[in-house]
Structure formats: structure tokens, C-alpha cells
Simulated assay, not measured.
Amino acid sequence: MPRSDERPGPQRTPPARLRDALSAALVALACLLAPLGAFAAWAAYGLADTGRYVSTMAPLAADPAVREAVADAVGDGVVRELDPGPMRGTIGPFVQDAVRSFTRTEAFRTAWEAGNRAVHGAVLHALRDERPPRGPVTVDLAPVVAQVKQQLAADHMPFAHRIPVRRTEVAVLPAEDVPGLRKGYHVLDAAALWLPLAAAALAVTGIAVAACRRRALTATGLGTALGGALLALAVALGRHLTLTDLPDPAHRPAAAAIYDALTATLRTTSWLLLALGLTVALASWLTTRRTSTAHPAPATPTPAPAPAPSSRTSV
């Protein structure tokens, strides 16, 4: 029967193994959500912002591969509009040369920026609109033509004032693709906010519940670095698949330049995650090593040898 003067001891904490298992699960989930959150933030705040998108695409107007692809597309379109006959083969090369010359002018840069702004604004409006699509997403190129006309007139180009400015609707997105893209846009828009917060909360909780917090911090750093490396690998794999699926191999250099420009921020984020994770893991490991060196474990005392039996015999 227990004595009445005994006091209950302190409550025992959960076993260290259970705490470490819970910490490992939380840290692993946080490291998985970190690259996903970076991707969602890139899509929601980078691609979905018209100003950032136009600023990203503007330097490509000076890229030779992009200019060549635009010249081929525009030149082929103009030639197709010509009446069929023997003159088409004669005029075609002159049209291609004229378009290539145009892509080296300031007016082309104006048209490039205005066209990208118009197309991006039309697609973004369709993704944010809650009404069912009534048809394909179209963009009116009349404002683009008006800006090009104004630039050519400022450059004293002959007959620039005679360029007609008509409403020209160009389809940029089929109607059947709008519902799926709209759902994906809303998911990314919500994930861009909540995934980074959830990853940070899970990482902090996982470190807090760990039996050895420094070890959990090291694991978090390594997991973050692994997530950044996987994100960089996904960007590279997406580039390979995008260029491989192009029907015309001649346009791959232009597509590669556009892909690299759009994913530059995502690549930078992946390398930042990799560097940050490795830095945290290395700092935690060095701190643990320094602490163990400064405070070594106490040596186990060696038991004293038993005394030898006495040789004297009692009488």
C-alpha cells in the first residue's frame, strides 16, 4: 500500500520514437509542399499578371530565333492571302524579305508588346470570367495595327498613313479548352496562397515536436534542398517535352527562348530552395557537431578491482 506522504511524479511525455515519427511525417509533407507552392505562386503571380508577362516577353523581340519564327508565320500568312497564280511564287520571296526587315524595326517591338498584351489580357479575362464560354477566345488586333501605323508614321515610312486599321478578330483559345483551364487557374490561384503557408506551418510544427530538434532541422533543410532540385528537374523535363512535341523542328529555337524566358523566375526559385535548404542543413549539422565537441559525454567510471583475498589464516 503506498505511503500517504508520496507525491505523484511528473507526467511522462510521449515516447521519443513516436515524436520522431510524427516529426518526420510533418517535415516530409512540408518539403513536398514547398516546391508545389513555388510552382503555384509562379503561375498565379507571374504568368497571370499581364504587366509581368509583357515585361518578360518584351526582350524576345530582339531574339533572332523569335524574329525568324514571326517572319515565317506572318510571311506565309500574307502569301496565302495572295491570289493563286504564277505571281505568287515570284512575290513570295519579296514578301518574306520585307517581313524580316520589319522585324528589325522599332515598330515590330511595338507590335510585339501590344500583341502580347492584347492576347494575355483576352485569355486572362476568359479565365476569370464565371460565365460559360460562348465561343473561342478572340483578340482584336486593330489596336496593334494602330500602334504600328503610328510608329511607322513617326519613322517617316512612305504610305504609312494609308495602312487600314480595321477590326480583326483572331482566335487565340478554343472554346472547349476554356472550362478546364478556368478550373486549373482557380486551383492555382488558391494554392499560391495556402501551400506556402501550409509548408511553413508543417515545418515549424515538425521541428517543434521532434525529440531532437537539431536533427529535425537538418532533415528539413535537406528535404527543402531535395524539393528545389526536383523542381529544377521538372522545369528541365517540361522544356524537353515542350520542344519535342512541336510539329515544326525549325521553330524549336524560338520556342526554347520563349520557354526559358517564362520559366526564368521558376528556375531561380528552385535554385534558391536548393541553396537555402543546404545552408540550413549544413549550419544545423555544424552546430550539432560543435556542441558535441564542446560538451563530450561523460566517461563511464571504471569499477575498482576487488581486493585480493588475505593469505593469513586465522588460528
Score class of each variant (00 low, 15 high):
residue 107 A to P: 04
residue 108 F to K: 00
residue 108 F to M: 00
residue 108 F to R: 00
residue 112 W to V: 08
residue 113 E to M: 09
residue 114 A to S: 12
residue 116 N to K: 04
residue 119 V to H: 00
residue 120 H to G: 10
residue 120 H to Y: 10
residue 122 A to W: 04
residue 122 A to P: 01
residue 124 L to M: 12
residue 125 H to K: 14
residue 125 H to A: 15
residue 126 A to R: 05
residue 127 L to H: 02
residue 129 D to S: 09
residue 130 E to P: 08
residue 131 R to M: 05
residue 131 R to Q: 12
residue 131 R to C: 01
residue 132 P to D: 10
residue 135 G to R: 09
residue 137 V to P: 02
residue 138 T to M: 11
residue 138 T to A: 11
residue 139 V to Q: 01
residue 142 A to N: 02
residue 142 A to V: 03
residue 143 P to G: 04
residue 143 P to H: 07
residue 144 V to Q: 05
residue 145 V to M: 07
residue 147 Q to R: 15
residue 150 Q to T: 15
residue 151 Q to G: 02
residue 153 A to L: 14
residue 153 A to P: 11
residue 154 A to V: 04
residue 157 M to T: 15
residue 158 P to W: 10
residue 160 A to V: 03
residue 160 A to S: 07
residue 162 R to D: 15
residue 162 R to L: 15
residue 163 I to L: 14
residue 164 P to C: 05
residue 165 V to M: 04
residue 167 R to T: 14
residue 169 E to P: 08
residue 170 V to W: 01
residue 171 A to L: 05
residue 174 P to K: 05
residue 175 A to L: 02
residue 177 D to L: 14
residue 177 D to Q: 15
residue 177 D to T: 12
residue 178 V to M: 09
residue 180 G to F: 05
residue 183 K to D: 15
residue 185 Y to A: 03
residue 185 Y to N: 02
residue 188 L to M: 11
residue 189 D to K: 14
residue 190 A to Y: 12
residue 191 A to L: 13
residue 191 A to D: 09
residue 193 L to D: 12
residue 194 W to M: 12
residue 195 L to F: 08
residue 196 P to A: 03
residue 200 A to I: 10
residue 202 L to T: 08
residue 203 A to F: 13
residue 203 A to P: 13
residue 203 A to G: 15
residue 203 A to D: 12
residue 204 V to S: 08
residue 205 T to P: 01
residue 206 G to R: 03
residue 206 G to N: 05
residue 207 I to R: 00
residue 207 I to N: 01
residue 208 A to K: 06
residue 209 V to S: 06
residue 211 A to H: 14
residue 211 A to S: 13
residue 211 A to L: 12
residue 213 R to E: 07
residue 214 R to F: 09
residue 214 R to N: 12
residue 215 R to W: 14
residue 216 A to C: 02
residue 217 L to T: 09
residue 219 A to Q: 12
residue 220 T to E: 09
residue 221 G to E: 01
residue 222 L to H: 11
residue 226 L to G: 11
residue 228 G to M: 01
residue 228 G to K: 00
residue 229 A to P: 00
residue 231 L to E: 02
residue 231 L to R: 01
residue 233 L to G: 10
residue 233 L to Q: 06
residue 235 V to L: 04
residue 235 V to W: 00
residue 237 L to W: 14
residue 238 G to R: 06
residue 239 R to L: 10
residue 242 T to V: 08
